[in-house]
């Protein structure tokens, strides 16, 4: 089945995008990302002043696997999960909140953003996004992966290595 991890499309997507931009302005964080728990980026925002982020695919995968490792640690002690996931380095830190049971909201901040603000506005953003997702009334777009799609994608797969193996 081909389903989205979250119903982020159309007007909801635009509204969530505003929530993320707002979060960055109010907390003075660098980036805000929504990733699903299998490690795919769902959407992201970057503050206008922030330096170019590292590979978002790498970031999302590490965030999702770090989250699941932490959840497994919590479980070892009979906890449902850890309430707060903050990582702080000398210059950069990350703060994570769960977004339902399929996704995570992560804020990446530096020394210019007070942790208290980051936490506060990330928590608020999560509430707003949850509210928006609950209120989705647009019909979900559809995509039918039929045989022709499978064949065409398979052909792309066949071409994946060609450039280098036959220079």
């Amino acid at each position: 089945m081909l389903e989205p991890s979250l119903d982020l499309y159309g007007a909801t997507f635009d509204k969530v995008d505003v929530v993320l931009s707002d979060l960055l302005v109010k907390s003075h964080a660098r980036y805000a990302l929504i990733v699903d728990r299998t490690g795919f980026v769902l959407m992201h925002q970057r503050a206008v002043w922030a330096p170019k982020p590292p590979s978002l695919d790498s970031l999302a995968t590490l965030i999702a696997s770090n989250y699941s490792a932490n959840a497994a640690i919590a479980k070892l002690f009979g906890e449902d999960g850890f309430r707060e996931t903050v990582q702080q380095g000398t210059d950069v830190g990350t703060y994570l909140e769960e977004l339902g049971d399929k996704a995570l909201l992560v804020t990446v901040f530096d020394a210019s953003a007070p942790l208290g603000k980051v936490k506060l506005f990330t928590k608020k953003a999560v509430e707003q996004i949850r509210f928006l997702l609950e209120g989705v009334d647009e019909p979900r777009p559809t995509f039918e992966p039929d045989q022709a799609w499978s064949d065409d994608t398979g052909a792309l797969l066949d071409g994946l290595f060609t450039e280098r193996t036959h220079p």
Partner: peptide, 12 residues
């Protein structure tokens, strides 16, 4: 489970 991202137009 394969997922689709309608806004980024990606199938994963």
């Amino acid at each position: 489970m394969s997922t689709i991202n309608f806004s980024a137009r990606e199938i994963n």
